[in-house]
Design a protein around this nucleic acid. Sequence first.
DNA 1: TCCAACATGTAAACGGTTACATGATTAC
DNA 2: GTAATCATGTAACCGTTTACATGTTGGA
Lengths: 210, 210
Amino acid sequence: MLGFSIMQLIERMPLSGYDLKKRFATSLVYGWYAHDSQIYPQLRQLEDHGYVESHLESSSAGPDRRVYALTEQGAAALRSWLQSPIDDTRQKSELMLRVWSSDLMPPETFLGLLADVTRQTQEHAARLTALHKQIRTRYGPPEVSWDPKHVGVLLCLEHDIQLAQAKLAWLARATEVVEMRVARASAEQGRQGNVAEPALDRDGREELWP
Amino acid sequence: MLGFSIMQLIERMPLSGYDLKKRFATSLVYGWYAHDSQIYPQLRQLEDHGYVESHLESSSAGPDRRVYALTEQGAAALRSWLQSPIDDTRQKSELMLRVWSSDLMPPETFLGLLADVTRQTQEHAARLTALHKQIRTRYGPPEVSWDPKHVGVLLCLEHDIQLAQAKLAWLARATEVVEMRVARASAEQGRQGNVAEPALDRDGREELWP
DNA sequence: TCCAACATGTAAACGGTTACATGATTAC
DNA sequence: GTAATCATGTAACCGTTTACATGTTGGA
């Protein structure tokens, strides 16, 4: 995956490991960042496969750079990957794991978690929105932008912004749910609990787990 | 991460590796599935750390099962993890990587990709919605459900459903954008292209990459 | 007798993170 | 001289995936 992420960048213009490192470090939208310790070995691996080729370049500022360019083989592999089927449903989310386990923590802790993620998401959405506005102002909306390259960038930004907004809506809803439960619990305090026995399956274990 | 995902399940009731395997295989919402080849070593690792303890159980049907239960240490580690700060902004998405690279494929291929993901997402959303309805009908809405365990499940389902819907809205928008571009391109066919030179930064490379 | 479900693993490869390590050039 | 930026790596570790491997019990 990282290999394609690199090849996709190199396809547009030859780049050195250092260039890639900078791209990955500053990219907001583009989730496919990588550490330098991963980039250089990956480049050599791609070269072993014949997907990229490199040559040394004397830089005006600093030491020599090894600059990588895509080969015909690499371009073919990239095209073939772009046309291969994709599975985009399974997403691991640490947040969902914690929400799933929310009954194992005190409500205040859960509310703190939700508030924390809300703040993060708001900041993230603000950055994405600013960037989207900037690029859109400069190159026009994706429908009419003269260079097809900006279409992907703008669409990625729109995707991430819309998903961030949906997440914020959910965070507000979840916060409300927990607050309502806390209010109900303190109202019922002292009264007899209305807790029923959970349903058991044939092995005597609770059934649930979808 | 997988360790907490397992401990979180075991906290509720002792489970064997096989039980966990089934849970992970059939879980829809819960992104933290794992292969059996990972589960058994992970369980032994958790036992080495003293987070779980196990004993053999003669099963009525089939061979002996090694059943794991959470220790006090494990419960403490789980609580501590649940209260630790979280970073929930970085998400790697293969779809976004392809969208970012959409200028490297023919528009028809891109439209095919979008259609494919749309179908997957619709099916996924339908399954989630059915499950949500079922659980909500049985145990009530999360605000009032008597057992706090269902709150997390229902909130996870609501999150995933809402995000799937946001994604579908974006997919429709992206499809529209690409179709408009295709229509414009064929309308402009034969005319002089209005392609300007891209902006160059000080190293002579194109600037863009947010 | 054979299949399905029960039950548990090993080995190799791949992917990603953290920490450590080195050295050149330019601007202050 | 010294800090920032340029430039490239190694080693150890942990997590994840894929393929392979083994054996039991109960029912058709």
